[in-house]
Design a protein around this nucleic acid. Structure first.
Lengths: 207, 207, 207, 207
DNA sequence: GATGAATGAGAATTCATTCAT
DNA sequence: CATGAATGAATTCTCATTCAT
């Protein structure tokens, strides 16, 4: 029964931290949402901050183990690998947008900066994989030389900008108010196509 | 002395809100930073939230009045206009990064959502200007047809991702620790070049 | 222009103190209601408490000078004098109900007790007049011997109980909601008749 | 330990609200008087206002359940019932004078008016019982026809006027200063006799 | 292990008052 | 004379955390 409750708390925390921020979320409402006793958070995690760290750690562990499979997939050429990464990312972010929102917020604040290292490490690893793919493409002369760090920044940045704010989503989709942008397949497709188009153009040799 | 103090408070607020978030900033420390009495915030603005609104309003007013000059500049062709916008944006965001950070955070939270409208409106106006430029380019057959909303999303998204987090900046620049990324001209140039490259490739006809 | 502003403040104070109590009224709203500067209250009266005292003093001075005329009126017998007093009181309280409410409240609290003396003195004087009338009636054998203090307590108590609470008024009148009980002549007449009836029965010899 | 502390707080609140009014009482001193932590009031009751409501509710519940026993007592005739009610009321008010003071104050203010309904309901029920007794007496031709609402107003009003203000009590008793009027049996008897006399005269047929 | 009660520190805000002009 | 700005003290209330059971 331990891990279940811990998990319930973490899920509730992610939900609330994403919507209200870390400081904007009180342990009281967090416990209420998770359906556990107020004292449980400190009991299990030691403090509100430690809970936050646990949440980040758990989720980032989950994300760390991806991507390599794409890298070594020999059935795809470099451009196809890029396409797969784009699709993969968009799907990840839409399905886990609350978590990405929390991370994104956290990275902008100058508090709990010890966590930044952790987050940046994940980002760095992703960059490395992408860099390897690009380097292969360059070696094979199918790609031109680009800035690998900033290329992944454009990749992530576009997705984050498009997906992490509900208000922004609504503006971009321009449809009736209260529907969930994160399950709208048409928008996901539109976004994937756009990023592919940008990346193809960016990576391919110019005329 | 009236407007000065108000301004001092707003500046201190922006600084702290950017670094610690709205809820993470207490009026106490805000007043201390601004060098005013603790009661002044409520005296001038009525509440912490109203101060926040005042800050957003003031700054967004400032940003609303740009961009049109670029649109109507007849000495530039469409691609040059895009380039100018990119340079303009990067300069703006680096010089006002704290403000952009606050706005960016705010847009992700589901609190004080009444402000989102205001913020999105500024974004929408920027998009309109960009769209006009793109449309002109398309009509003149120098640009291909692209998704205008998502194109500006990529533009903003890349900059925000690269600039709004200090940790991200440091990772990207990969230089010694405590130097200020927002005054590093080399990095700015690198970023501008990257975005220009991406945009040129994206907008121009493919081979 | 002095006395006018002072008067305006006193009137506003009476209004607000009656509805919200002394502590429940802030100088800010008081000044707003009176249409004067916030600093005027302290400027004219020295403090909020002194304003209160000034208000009580002024109004009680006004009420102190009544009643003697009734006492010495030779055209009326004792019962007629009692009747006149009842009518006079009911009219006074209805027309000055806010003030009476303030006084009544004040007398119940154990704060600013120095004012109680003042208020009780007015009450005492009223009692003295009534006592003289009753004593005359007793001497003429038209009244029986009664407790003069408690008789005036019944007199005042009935009126206060009936008139000083709007909710109580509404309950007693049992009419449609938002009308002003203090201008309802029918209710005033009903109240006067009741008190006269009570007093006549109380003072006259029993069968 | 739960109900005890709640009760302690309620008792302290009644004490202080009676002496200083609701707004004149701070949670700080309330907690100090009750000997509990300053946060307990909000912990138990949610807010100062809710504490007030809880106090009123609890006490009014207590008073709601009386009186009917007198109504159905077949061993007493109507006048005896009235006498019993008078004695009962005077005893109640003297023993619970703080509570009655709070209620009485509250009814005069135009704040927290939602509570008025509650209070008036208790008053209304008392009136109904009294009205039934009077109606019986009228039917048996031992009473004359009177205004039942205002008759109970006189009953309550006299007691409130005599008992709810310490200063008024002292004036009426005219004895040495610091003794407690609420335990002075002589004064209670005097008051009871006066009210009985008034009510007998008021209700019986006139000569 | 698990929890409801309890708490001290600190939050935002409002207050009556003062003071420079 | 009169006032808007300014302030320190005090307000209610919420917070994360602890502790006895």
């Amino acid at each position: 029964m331990h891990p279940d409750k811990k998990q319930t708390i973490i899920e509730a925390a992610m939900e609330l931290f994403a919507d209200k921020g870390f400081e904007g979320t009180s342990i009281r409402e967090l416990a209420a949402k998770a359906g556990v006793n107020i004292a449980m958070v400190n009991y299990y995690f030691g403090s509100k901050e430690k809970l936050f760290e646990a949440m980040v750690e758990e989720k980032s562990t989950y994300f760390r183990e991806r991507l390599n499979s794409i890298l070594i997939d020999e059935s795809k050429n470099e451009l196809q690998k890029i396409d797969t990464i784009i699709e993969d990312y968009v799907n990840r972010i839409t399905s886990q947008h609350k978590y990405h929102r929390v991370i994104h917020q956290e990275l902008m604040l100058q508090q709990r900066e010890s966590l930044h290292e952790n987050i940046i490490a994940v980002f760095a690893k992703n960059k490395e994989v992408l860099k390897k793919i690009i380097d292969q493409g360059v070696k094979k002369k199918v790609f031109r030389k680009v800035d690998p760090e900033l290329t992944i920044v454009t990749l992530f940045g576009t997705m984050h900008q498009a997906l992490l704010s509900k208000s922004m989503c609504k503006f971009l989709i321009a449809k009736d108010a209260n529907f969930d942008p994160y399950t709208d397949e048409a928008f996901k497709k539109r976004l994937i196509n756009h990023i592919k188009q940008v990346m193809h153009a960016h990576l391919s040799h110019q005329p």
